[in-house]
Design a protein around this nucleic acid. Structure first.
Length: 632
RNA sequence: GCCCUUGUAGCUCAGUUGGCAGAGCACAUCCAUGGUAAGGAUGAGGUCAACGGUUCGAUUCCGUUCGAGGGCUCCA
């Protein structure tokens, strides 16, 4: 019953390196002895022009990454005697290895490890696979407590060891044949991080070294370049530079302050959101920010989600909680009266601000916050209506993403987990309606078997941003829990009380997080309809300040966001400033423009339009805004 | 919360084995009247995150606290 707001990071990959590998995951297979089969002879990365250098192409990149992790482990063990090794898998963009080190490692130590790795690679050591019994394995790794623990969990007869150079590791494989198959220029050690042994915070904290690794130097460089681009677009950086928002640790971390320019964006976005909802059959609600504890007991939040909630405040002997979700309030409105099947479906939306406790270390700019506004809605309908309703909400969502300029969208369909509530029949109809809706929209999708919440199946949509990263935004979730717990009913044609279906959906997800993603995808260069400042009027010299003022005033009168730049900076500096602020249109005016009543137009990307009459420019601007044009 | 890194002017950062605190941008004043990405001069601006310790002396060394950044999902 807790529709999870999309995580801060794209879920296929994470964190700062949150860029999905540009080529996705490649299918490959292994022969029984653990060698890659011929299917993986070349990578899609190499496309139609595979290198015929078999040594670098004979192994899938996952194998290369994993083998590199062994090489890194060898280097670390050699450089830091006494190191205990844990695990070192291949991951989305590279690999990591977890160690227990005799002394803390500094980032400055990484180059030395890299150097040692290159030496090992150059030494051309073969990877040898040996099968051993459990008893033998325990003996061999007697000095490695983490390996011992792993071995204890394994079945006898299935244990293999890989050895290269001076390093021996418990490993399922497969590996490349020899370190010569690894390219010294296609990996880079990335960072040092703490990680609990087996992800359990009660177990020892190990030191994890992350690395990027690819099949070729070109791919590594492309990846590093994308990371660099991502860093330039970082929402925290642009938020400061463009004066969009701030956070105030002294007043509470993870809470967003929207400055005038950010607020202008938000108001335009929300106005559009409301219009679209009214046009598409929704009614909008406003509900309180806090409610008594019985609400959250009934909904189940206090049972399942308490650690995600802000602690209660006491008032008149009652406990009030800040809402982590809007649904119980919407349900109260529903239950305020008796509903006939003729009233359904109800589509009730709210830009509802919720508060959730996120661990301090998880907070991140606009992406992961403690207070945020969901563009939430609940659809309450009869079983007969559910299929159409799901198809409709999906269509609506895709239309909104299209307007916002996101065209690459992928669906993830999550089905019933082991522990769940609700009758099987409901799960079946629900899943069927999700499946049909996705098919109707021709959306590429992946199944996530058993990945649904216990209270119902769902579709999540991931959108791809301008630099190829995927972000989970929209979520459409069935809820078989709350209608039951709150005893929601409607009266059917036969006069019987029946249980309605309820669907939670958030299209943009959270307004804060959407803003973050949008800032990063557009690099702060918003389309004109969302730009906080649409027009900067720049006089060539202060002699023309009056004309500049007149032009700006006339634009403002008609509702455009325009201002004249009248400081004593030179024109060049004003252009530079306006461009740096990503103002879409700069109107440069001097004697010629004043005398002819025209404006000379410079776009923020440096292009220039033919000078036009002010009236003509207004029409031009009006049209771009009305169409929500993505082009200037 | 835990691991590593980090905290100096509004912003971005420098600060050399401990000796009166620095730059660029932004801001203010003055000069400069200009045609598509930075004109010039002057000035103001800091209890060097906070607290404690070592020292004749701490922004600098040590400790604690608070905040920020990267991680803590990928399972031999």
């Amino acid at each position: 019953m807790v529709p999870r707001i999309p995580r801060a990071y794209p879920t296929l990959s994470a964190g700062k390196g949150s860029l999905q590998g540009p080529y996705g995951v490649r299918p490959y297979a292994y022969t029984p002895d653990g060698r890659p089969r011929a299917v993986a002879l070349w990578t899609r990365a190499a496309g139609a022009f595979p290198h015929f250098r078999s040594t670098c192409m004979a192994h899938p990149v996952e194998t290369v990454r994993h083998s590199l992790s062994h090489v890194m482990a060898e280097a670390v063990v050699k450089l830091y005697p006494g190191t205990k090794v844990a695990i070192g898998p291949a991951i989305a963009d590279g690999f990591y290895y977890d160690f227990q080190l005799p002394a803390p490692l500094q980032p400055e130590d990484l180059p030395a490890i890299e150097k040692e790795m290159r030496r090992i690679i150059a030494a051309n050591a073969a990877f040898k696979r040996v099968e051993v019994s459990k008893a033998e394995a325990l003996k061999i790794f007697a000095d490695e407590p983490f390996k011992v623990e792993l071995i204890e969990g394994l079945e006898d007869g299935s244990i293999s060891i890989y050895e290269q150079g001076s390093f021996r590791d418990l490993c399922r494989g497969p590996h490349v044949d020899s370190t010569r198959d690894l390219r010294p220029d296609s990996f880079k050690l990335r960072s040092i991080a703490g990680a609990y042994w087996r992800g359990d915070e009660k177990r020892p904290m190990l030191t994890r070294i992350y690395a990027y690794a690819f099949s070729s130097k070109a791919e590594l460089e492309a990846h590093l370049k994308m990371l660099e681009e991502a860093e330039k677009r970082d929402n925290r950086k642009l938020g400061k530079e463009l004066d969009l928002f701030s956070t105030h640790e002294e007043a509470g971390p993870g809470l967003i302050y929207w400055h005038p320019k950010g607020a202008r964006f938000r108001v335009e976005l929300e106005n559009w959101w409301r219009d679209e909802h009214y046009k598409n059959g929704y009614e909008l609600l406003f509900t309180p920010h806090i409610g008594k504890s019985w609400l959250w007991e009934t909904s189940g939040h206090l049972g399942f989600y308490k650690e995600g909630m802000y602690p209660p405040m006491e008032m008149d002997g009652d406990k009030y909680y800040a809402k982590p979700m809007n649904c119980p309030f919407h349900i109260l409105i529903y239950k305020n009266g008796v509903h006939s099947y003729r009233d359904l479906p109800l589509r009730w939306g709210e830009l509802g601000t919720v508060y959730r406790y996120e661990r301090a270390g998880a907070l991140h700019g606009l992406m992961r916050v403690r207070g945020f506004t969901q563009d939430d809605a609940h659809i309450i309908c009869t079983p007969e209506q559910i299929e159409d309703e799901i198809a409709e909400v999906l269509r609506f969502s895709l239309a909104m993403w299209k307007t916002l300029g996101f065209n690459e969208i992928k669906a993830y369909l999550a089905t019933k987990p082991k522990d769940s509530v609700g009758e099987q029949e409901r799960w079946d109809t629900a899943l069927e309606s999700l499946r049909k809706a996705v098919a109707k929209e021709n959306l590429p999708y992946e199944m996530d078997e058993g990945g649904g919440a216990f209270y119902g199946p769902k579709i999540d949509l991931k959108v791809k941003d301008a630099i190829g990263r995927e972000w989970q935004m929209t979520t459409i979730q069935f809820d078989f829990n709350e209608p039951e717990r709150f005893d929601m009913t409607y009266v059917d044609a036969d006069g019987q009380k029946k249980r309605p279906y309820m669907v939670h959906r958030a299209l943009l997800g959270s307004i804060e997080r959407f803003f973050g993603v949008y800032i990063e995808s557009t690099a702060g260069a918003f389309p004109v309809w969302l730009s906080p400042e649409q027009v900067a009027v720049i006089p060539v010299g202060l002699d023309f300040a009056d004309y500049a003022k007149d032009v700006a005033a006339e634009l403002k009168r008609e509702g455009f966001r325009a201002s004249a730049m009248l400081s004593d900076d030179r024109m060049n500096a004003k252009i530079r400033n306006a461009q740096g602020q990503k103002v879409p249109y700069m109107l440069v005016v001097g004697a010629k423009e004043r005398d002819e009543g025209t404006v000379s137009i410079r776009l923020r990307d440096g292009r220039q339009l033919e000078p036009m009459a002010l009236a003509g420019f207004k029409d031009y601007l009006r049209d771009k805004i009305a169409r929500k044009s993505l082009e200037l």
